[in-house]
Simulated assay, not measured.
Amino acid sequence: MLCAFGASFLLVGVFPADPGAGFPAGAPEDRVTSLSAHGTVHMLSGTVGYLALCVAFLVLARHFAALRQRGWTFFARLTPVGVLAGFAASATTVVAFTAGAGLSLLGLSAVTARLTHPARQ
């Protein structure tokens, strides 16, 4: 799942999003009514990548649950909910998308730090 997420980041970097809804800065505030080919690849790649990341968090939640680490289990289960809620709300504001994307990357960083530096017992 994490490899799919990483590959999606490569694709969205190569295929830029169509400007619109005030993104990037200086773009018209109007919503994009149709996507270009590169915009379509960007959107599909990002969608697949972030869904893969959400699934990875749920797999990690099972790992933490097996270790009886309730706090990390809760965190790994809650993060995909926040990410998907941010993306769902992005239809109304770009800030919601940014919050969802940021939450996912912060969550991934936290879990990575936790797994690479386990607590001493």
Rank of each mutant, 00 (worst) to 15 (best):
F74H: 09
A99F: 08
R114N: 05
L44W: 09
P118F: 06
T47H: 11
V94W: 06
V94N: 11
H42K: 11
H38T: 13
L78I: 13
R77Q: 10
P16Y: 10
T79A: 11
E29Y: 03
C54A: 15
Q69A: 14
T93A: 14
V48E: 03
G46D: 04
V48D: 02
F87A: 01
F5E: 02
T33L: 13
R114D: 03
L78Q: 12
L60S: 08
S90N: 02
S45P: 02
A119T: 07
A96E: 06
A4Y: 04
S90Q: 02
G20P: 02
D18V: 04
A76Q: 03
V41C: 13
G102T: 10
L51S: 06
V48K: 05
P28F: 05
G86M: 05
S36C: 11
F87W: 07
G49V: 01
F23K: 07
A56D: 05
C3W: 13
L115R: 12
L44T: 09
V59E: 13
T116Y: 11
E29I: 03
G26R: 04
G102R: 09
Q121A: 15
L60T: 00
P118G: 09
A113S: 12
G49R: 00
Q121L: 14
L51K: 03
T33P: 02
S8F: 01
L44K: 06
L2A: 02
F74I: 12
A4S: 10
A91H: 12
F57R: 01
T98A: 15
F5A: 06
Q121P: 14
G6V: 09
A110S: 06
A37D: 08
L58N: 04
A85H: 04
R70G: 03
F64V: 07
R70S: 06
G39L: 11
A56C: 09
P80N: 05
T47S: 15
Y50S: 00
S45G: 04
P16C: 10
F97R: 07
A25V: 06
M43Q: 13
C3F: 10
A65T: 09
